[in-house]
Amino acid sequence: MLANVNRATPYLFLAPAVLVMAVALLYPIGYMIWASFLDWNPSQRIGEAEFVGLRNYIYLLGDAAFRESFWVTIRFAAIVVTVEMVLGVGLALLLDRKLRGMTVLRTIFILPMMIAPIVVGLMWRYMYHPTVGTLNRMLESVGLPSAPWLSDGTWAFASIVIADIWQWTPFIFILALAALQSLPQSAMEAARIDGASGWQLIWHVKLPLMLPVLIVTALLRLIDAFKVLEVILVLTNGGPGLSTEIVALRIARTAQEFQDLGTAAAMSNLLLILLLVLTILMFGYTRLTERRAARLAAAREAEIT
């Protein structure tokens, strides 16, 4: 009897958390999945909406505009995360030393991240303004032709990429810096004694040791990049054409402008599935490298004994 109670205790302690999870996470997701099978107009209650099975999904697969926005999202996420990773880690490697005023510098570096996305959008929008914007004025003052920042498809895409990189590189930077500073000094010293150059040290010691943190950082950024909405909404609202219409924006427009909550829910689910697959792949990869490292360590130990 007592043994039973003892066994049940951990579950009892877990119960509140499970309950909160169920209400706060599973319920909305279940609601969204259910909604994606409905032809649901926001003027109706969910109970009044007609069940249409997989029609929303079939429609989406055949919808050229959705496919286009899907590619825009993937392109956007891939580019910004790659560039941000390179810049952020690079900055962290450069600034991982004792300089005077370093604390102030670091605070300044992470400022962009702290600004509300709508404000970031507005700020860049004014900077990109064709005639009075800072960027075009600067170009003109050095005798270069002004650029169609937001009025040409390719430029507009580049513009939102620039704004996102500006805002989110600091995120990678602080995480990478924290990872760098928690690396075991002994490994670094050993490498130095073995005569490793600065580059070798970074390439063969620091980066591999930082890798687990970097993977999680990249994953977090990637998930975020897939869902970015406000900055693009303010900057281009998806235009010109569909050149900057990422899936999150298309979902918002489908729900608001087209008044089609079912299709919007189906789109959200597709995005969720994509993110899930990405997450599983990333964790699978870390699990794999960890296991390999463990095997290597075990082998080495066997060799020694």
Binding site: A65, G238, P240, L242, E245, R253
Partner: peptide
Amino acid sequence: SDIGTTMSQVLTE
């Protein structure tokens, strides 16, 4: 919205 995005493609692309 379809007219609008398509027209934007006419204007910019």
